[in-house]
Structures are given as C-alpha cells and as structure tokens.
Simulated assay, not measured.
Amino acid sequence: MLQVLTIVVVGVMVGVEFAVAFVINPILAGLPDDSLIAGRAHGGRMLGAVMPFWYIGSLVLVTIWAVTAHHESGVALVVTAGGLLLLSVIMSIALLVPINNRGKTWTAANRPADWRRQMSRWDRFHHVRVAIIIAAFTLLATALV
C-alpha cells in the first residue's frame, strides 16, 4: 500500500510539473506580456504554496519506503529515487524558489527590465528539475515491479 501511495503521489507531482513546463508556460508565453506576467505570477503564488509540501511529502514517503524495505530487492532503486528527489528539493530551494518569489509579485507596472531573462532562467532550471523527478518516478515504478 505504501509503495502504491508513494508512486501515485510522486507520479501526480511529476504530471503537474511536466504540464507546467510543457503545456501551461508555453500557453502563457503566447499571450500578451501583461497577461503572461499575470498568469505566471498567479501560478507562482498558487503552486508555490502547494509544491513545498508535495516535494517534501514525496521525499518522506520514499524515505519510509526505503527504510521499511531495506531487506527487499529493488531498495537500491528506491534509495536512488530518494536521492534524486532530495536533489530536486535542494535545487528548488537554491535556484527556483528565489526566482519564483520575485516573479509572483510582478505586475505589468512593476516588472523588472530583465523579467524575460529571469523567467527563461526559471524555465531552464525547471526543465532540469522535471527530468530529475521523472527519473525518480521511473526508478520507483521499476522498484515496485
């Protein structure tokens, strides 16, 4: 039951983050600048409030799985997935959250001159993070089977 719950929680998180990277942000990028900024700021506030709990919760579930299955085959995959999720949390705190905290306050009236560069930087880091959590999810699914 724990393994299935963990895979579902991590899998849905991966799906949301994938959608942000490859669906939502490209849609917003096609809008006029004012709408783009408003949409990304709103998304930054909304997801910025939820994702810390989701990332940490996923890491906790994986840690519990690894501890309770320490004698089972496939535990190395679970531990590696946990390491990748930990990397994604560290990366989020160090690289993505500072940009997000600035961006979620932007409006058409107060955006900085380099707002596009900052959004592009966030997107690049986010794509790397998505690849990392997809790898973690893949390892967890493989460990289950």
Rank of each mutant, 00 (worst) to 15 (best):
residue 117 R to I: 08
residue 67 V to Q: 08
residue 76 A to W: 07
residue 44 G to F: 01
residue 90 I to D: 01
residue 48 G to H: 08
residue 66 A to G: 11
residue 40 R to H: 10
residue 41 A to D: 07
residue 84 L to S: 02
residue 24 I to L: 11
residue 89 V to A: 12
residue 116 R to S: 11
residue 44 G to N: 10
residue 19 A to M: 13
residue 28 L to A: 15
residue 66 A to Y: 02
residue 30 G to H: 06
residue 105 T to A: 06
residue 117 R to C: 00
residue 26 P to L: 05
residue 109 A to T: 06
residue 85 L to I: 10
residue 124 R to E: 08
residue 36 L to E: 09
residue 87 L to Q: 03
residue 35 S to M: 11
residue 85 L to P: 01
residue 68 T to G: 07
residue 39 G to K: 00
residue 95 L to N: 08
residue 39 G to H: 00
residue 33 D to Y: 07
residue 54 W to C: 11
residue 117 R to T: 14
residue 79 V to E: 07
residue 59 L to P: 02
residue 63 T to C: 05
residue 119 M to A: 13
residue 61 L to I: 10
residue 68 T to R: 13
residue 102 R to E: 12
residue 74 G to H: 01
residue 62 V to C: 11
residue 60 V to A: 14
residue 82 G to W: 00
residue 76 A to D: 11
residue 123 D to T: 15
residue 49 A to K: 14
residue 92 S to G: 13
residue 98 P to M: 11
residue 101 N to C: 09
residue 70 H to M: 13
residue 61 L to M: 15
residue 89 V to G: 03
residue 122 W to E: 01
residue 52 P to A: 10
residue 31 L to T: 04
residue 22 F to W: 14
residue 91 M to D: 14
residue 85 L to Y: 02
residue 72 E to T: 14
residue 113 A to P: 02
residue 99 I to Y: 05
residue 44 G to T: 02
residue 28 L to C: 12
residue 23 V to D: 00
residue 76 A to Q: 08
residue 72 E to R: 14
residue 93 I to T: 10
residue 70 H to C: 10
residue 87 L to P: 01
residue 112 P to C: 05
residue 103 G to K: 14
residue 108 A to H: 12
residue 57 G to A: 10
residue 57 G to R: 06
residue 21 A to W: 09
residue 67 V to N: 08
residue 93 I to Y: 08
residue 37 I to P: 01
residue 47 L to T: 06
residue 44 G to Q: 04
residue 85 L to R: 04
residue 30 G to P: 02
residue 63 T to W: 02
residue 118 Q to H: 14
residue 27 I to H: 10
residue 48 G to T: 06
